[in-house]
């Protein structure tokens, strides 16, 4: 029972504090995993990869998978609903107060601070993801940090980077990249 209550609270908080797209929920999910011990950072990286393979908003997909992992089907429903609840409530309020909201510069001023802060959180989450995805899975040994990287993964990452930035290929369907990654992973036998 208490698991459901905690799920509700954690995802309500995530919905309330994550500002931006689905990626903005990742730092919160990492924090939840660390504090509650429901899943490891590596398991979360797998869930993110799986959520990217499925259509729909990344944030709700991730919440569904996380909830399912922690507390089964009901957990999945509960997590997604708790994630969306604060957003929908605030949006209803905003839609009604829109006329007034529009004329205040206060919201804009707050956003000028919140946007870079949220970007910083996303950077931190991305760094953790990089460590997990490019590492050999063991804990990072600060005395020999270079040995810790899995060089096949680093090479694949370096090979893919130009394509996600290059004008002609960056609009490629994400599934193309995912399929390529899967094929490369199987070939390299990592």
């Amino acid at each position: 029972m208490s698991v459901y209550l905690f799920l509700l609270l954690e995802f309500f908080g995530t919905g309330l504090f994550a500002v931006g797209g689905g990626l903005a929920t990742i730092p919160f999910l990492q924090s939840i995993g660390r504090r509650r011990g429901w899943y490891t950072a590596k398991k979360l990286a797998d869930m993110i990869a799986a959520a990217q393979c499925v259509p729909g908003p990344l944030g709700t997909n991730l919440a569904a998978y996380t909830g399912l992992t922690v507390a089964g089907l009901f957990g999945a429903v509960l997590s997604v609903v708790s994630l969306m609840a604060p957003t929908v409530l605030v949006d209803l309020l905003v839609a009604r107060l829109m006329e007034r909201f529009k004329h205040t510069t206060r919201a804009e001023r707050v956003m000028r601070v919140l946007r870079p802060v949220s970007a910083g959180l996303i950077c931190a989450a991305a760094l953790t993801l990089l460590q997990i995805s490019l590492g050999s899975g063991a804990a990072l040994d600060w005395h020999a940090p270079l040995r810790w990287f899995d060089w096949r993964c680093v090479a694949l990452y370096a090979a893919l980077l130009p394509f996600v930035f290059w004008k002609k290929t960056r609009k490629l369907h994400p599934l193309c990249y995912i399929a390529f990654g899967a094929a490369a992973g199987m070939l390299l036998g990592v």
Binding site: L160, I178, G185
Partner: peptide, 10 residues
């Protein structure tokens, strides 16, 4: 999945 994780990272 190792490969997919890297692709997702990119």
């Amino acid at each position: 999945f190792v490969g997919i994780r890297v692709a997702v990272c990119a």
